[in-house]
Design a protein around this nucleic acid. Structure first.
Lengths: 290, 290
DNA sequence: ACTGTCATGAAAAGATTTTTTCAGTGTGCG
DNA sequence: CGCACACTGAAAAAATCTTTTCATGACAGT
């Protein structure tokens, strides 16, 4: 198929000789700022080219398209090909894992999640959160649900090394009130709440907010109800070819935040890490001697 | 004007919270393969998203556009900007994060880690481990180090739902001997040990092996000393543009294993999950009544 | 100068898209 | 349990787009 395999631009060029004056004028207009100029309606492009709509129809038919909609469909395909992202190409690790193996299907899904999440993620939000987390005057409280508790713990463990005034709220909600009691205005509550949103977390968020704490939420594309209360929200794509949701991309953002915070105050952090290193060493010695 | 200055994508994201179910569905569809998916007619995109055309009209008006044509005009402008800008063309998916932003550098690193890890990963190993984990007669013991403890917990939490006979060893090594005491031949000890290898884990692995347990290790490219004792090893690429190692790919493999195990015994798992669902419901009730 | 052919756009006709209306459905709340 | 309210899509109405028809004018050949 001539039309199918060649680009619209090619087709226009190859037919240029047989075009009439008005058609050439139209073709010029189309080629100028190609392919975007062909995105609008037939009326629009006719006006832009200074020709009548019938001229447009006649030309695209002369080029071999069924009609204007057909012509435009081809153009759309081309635009898609032009701007579709390189990550989408699945030619990478095909080597030793057959296409249908779960590892491959998972990898595809995760890359897709990553791409979509990053596309929808405002770097300003990320930077703001990093700045907030870097502020050592603010106390940090981490909390997660049944599944996401591990993510909260992971985040907490790192932040605890990097800076003081961090706390991990246990999964058991009975201990939460005492934390809320101690919250000061400006403190940060970092919540992980994904799918199966847990009602208790909304209550916690409300209480924390009333204490003046700021709330940062990691949630999924459907957004936890607690989102309304949040200062900043990370909406992460969590879909996997599985009965379970994927936390991979959430962890990705957590790690990026850890690095951003660490980086913003490296000098202080370095000292802390050295001291910590020494403490671990001592603990080890205790054990050996003990 | 809000609408004029922000990208359509931004506008969708910022309004996401106030969108209804069908509208969210539509927004997802639009964002997926953005912005090409919004190039067609209102009918087309409604069909693609599985919603009605009135929903589309209502949403774009909610977003602040005068109507669908207005919405599409903005999209066209954006496509134009994207295509005519050669830098943006290069990496569309990261276009709203400048090239050197940490998110982008992290994403590159993670994708690289993933590729390398998968290249070096034998699917036979993966399948064997999945089979071992699926065997309900074997007791499962999970353990991790200071940082990787959260990964062990994540894995454990899921496996506990899927099958019986699972245990999470606390980070505190003093409780380990009693677990080892109860290990039977054929039991599985799943160890996470990355960089900063913890000597205690080697001792644990040795003791467990003497009890006849099989050992599965998640480690990094330099391999934990406990690897020698393991029946199966996952060597994960963990390098990140950070002072810290990345656990993202490790989590990826864990999730893939969870799915593989779950999948291999779906019928049994389904029953367990239903029962569990009921128990959670009851717990919630307890709390309300209590 | 006459005639036939072709190019062109105005306008009508036809097709499709966009918007509005409205009734059914479900959900939350008292 | 029932009411009020919001959400949703089917269908009608309105608007717009696409195609066809047709009249006009330009031009080449006779």
């Amino acid at each position: 198929m001539t039309v199918a395999s060649k680009t619209v631009s090619d087709v226009i060029h190859s037919h240029f000789g047989v075009l009439t004056r008005a058609e050439k004028q139209l073709a010029e207009s189309l080629l100028d700022n190609y392919p975007v100029s062909g995105l609008g309606s037939i009326t629009t492009i006719a006006e832009n080219a200074g020709v009548s709509t019938p001229t447009v129809v006649r030309m695209v038919q002369k080029l071999g398209y069924k009609g204007y909609p057909d012509f435009q469909a081809h153009l759309h395909q081309e635009v898609e090909a032009t701007i579709s992202n390189p990550i989408a190409k699945h030619d990478r690790w095909a080597s030793n894992a057959p296409g249908t193996h779960i590892l491959n299907r998972f990898a595809d899904a995760i890359i897709d999640n990553l791409r979509q999440t990053l596309t929808g993620l405002d770097t300003a939000t990320f930077d703001s959160v990093a700045t907030l987390l870097s502020d050592r005057k603010r106390n940090l409280y981490f909390v997660g649900g049944r599944i996401t508790g591990a993510l909260a713990e992971y985040f907490f463990t790192h932040m605890q090394v990097i800076r003081p005034n961090t706390a991990l709220l246990s999964a058991n909600s009975s201990s939460w009130p005492q934390y809320v009691l101690n919250m000061n205005p400006g403190d940060l509550l970092i919540i992980f709440d994904i799918r199966r949103y847990e009602q208790e977390l909304v209550s916690l968020a409300t209480a924390a907010k009333n204490s003046g704490a700021e709330i940062i939420i990691f949630t999924d594309q459907w957004a936890s109800p607690a989102t309304k209360l949040a200062r900043h929200t990370f909406r992460v794509q969590i879909e996997a070819p599985s009965a379970w949701d994927s936390s991979v991309v959430t962890l990705f953002i957590v790690e990026a935040l850890i690095e951003a915070v660490q980086n913003s105050t490296w000098d202080e952090t370095k000292e802390r890490m050295k001291t910590l290193e020494g403490l671990f060493e001592q603990t080890r010695l205790f054990r050996k001697l003990g």
